[in-house]
């Protein structure tokens, strides 16, 4: 299955990939097994055969706050991405097309790299003064600080790939520049917008740091809830496994669709492949 010339190289390659697959897949398999393990088998790491139970799933989905946490995470991620695309698309187009925005391009990159440690204190204090700690709006605002730059940076790369003559053509065809932008250029970068949106969604969905410090009680997002399963009083491994799978599965499915766009997006036009 490898195109190496020597047989030993093929065997070594096969072995290396097999080990890599095992290392990647093992934690997932194990978390899944843990989620269907009956409570009586808890704390026995060497037991692989047991009667599966749906107790943990029932408990988490029907009796815990996790469905509410899922909804919170979804609302936050969806709103953040919607705002990011709304402000990011026109700006990225401008950065890609007009003279005099070279500096702006790089400040977007710099913003993308801003450590959350700098921003969390003001966010916390302002929300505290507004009595908005424990509100989804606060988390959305905080998530905008990293989702907006990332989404914009992605989009710049995608707009750069659209030939300028396309909007020139539309303008010669009788449209204004803005019409050319939304009738011709936006449709042409639709796959890129999708990829940027999905990536931004995943980033927001996965965030713990801001959500941990800006939410509580009602407004907790899924990662915060997952962290809450392991307290100083102990851990409920089965339920935590369920919560982890719930957080991970949708993201893995989404990521599958954007993988091929991801590299171009991350490079943002800075790396030409």
């Amino acid at each position: 299955m490898f195109s190496f010339s020597s047989r030993s190289a093929r065997i070594a390659a096969f072995f290396a990939i097999a080990v890599a697959l095992l290392i990647v897949l093992f934690p997932f398999v194990w978390v899944f097994l843990e989620s269907i393990k009956p409570a009586s088998f808890g704390g026995k790491p060497d037991v692989w055969l047991f009667p599966p139970t749906s107790d943990n799933w029932n408990n988490v989905l029907l009796q815990s706050d996790v469905p509410a946490n899922i909804l919170n995470s979804f609302v936050v991620a969806f709103s953040t991405v919607a705002i990011a695309l709304l402000v990011g698309c026109p700006a990225a187009y401008a950065f890609s097309r007009f003279r005099g925005y070279q500096g702006a391009r790089y400040s977007i990159l710099a913003a993308e790299m801003m450590p959350p440690a700098i921003l969390i204190l003001p966010f916390f204090l302002v929300l505290y003064h507004l009595q908005m700690i424990d509100s989804l709006a606060g988390v959305i605002a905080a998530h905008l600080s990293f989702v907006v730059p990332v989404v914009t940076w992605f989009l710049i790369g995608f707009f750069d790939e659209v030939p300028r003559d396309l909007e020139n053509q539309a303008m010669v065809d009788g449209y204004t520049r803005f019409q050319a932008f939304y009738k011709v250029i936006l449709p042409a970068v639709r796959p890129g917008i999708g990829a940027a949106g999905v990536f931004g969604f995943v980033l927001s969905w996965n965030d713990l740091f801001y959500a941990l410090l800006l939410t509580g009680g009602e407004s907790r997002t899924l990662p915060v809830a997952i962290a809450g399963y392991w307290t100083f009083r102990g851990v409920d491994m089965g339920k935590m496994a369920v919560a982890i799978l719930i957080a991970v599965i949708p993201v893995l499915i989404l990521s599958f669709f954007i993988q091929k766009h991801l590299v171009r997006g991350i490079g943002g036009g800075a790396v030409k492949y």
């Binding site: 934690p27 969905w205 996965n206 899924l222 990662p223 392991w230 935590m240 982890i244 893995l252 990521s255």
Partner: peptide, 14 residues
């Protein structure tokens, strides 16, 4: 490629 898409807190706890 799957691991890079997962929320890091889940990875840590796993």
């Amino acid at each position: 490629l799957a691991p890079m898409f997962i929320t890091p807190i889940a990875v840590g706890l796993m």
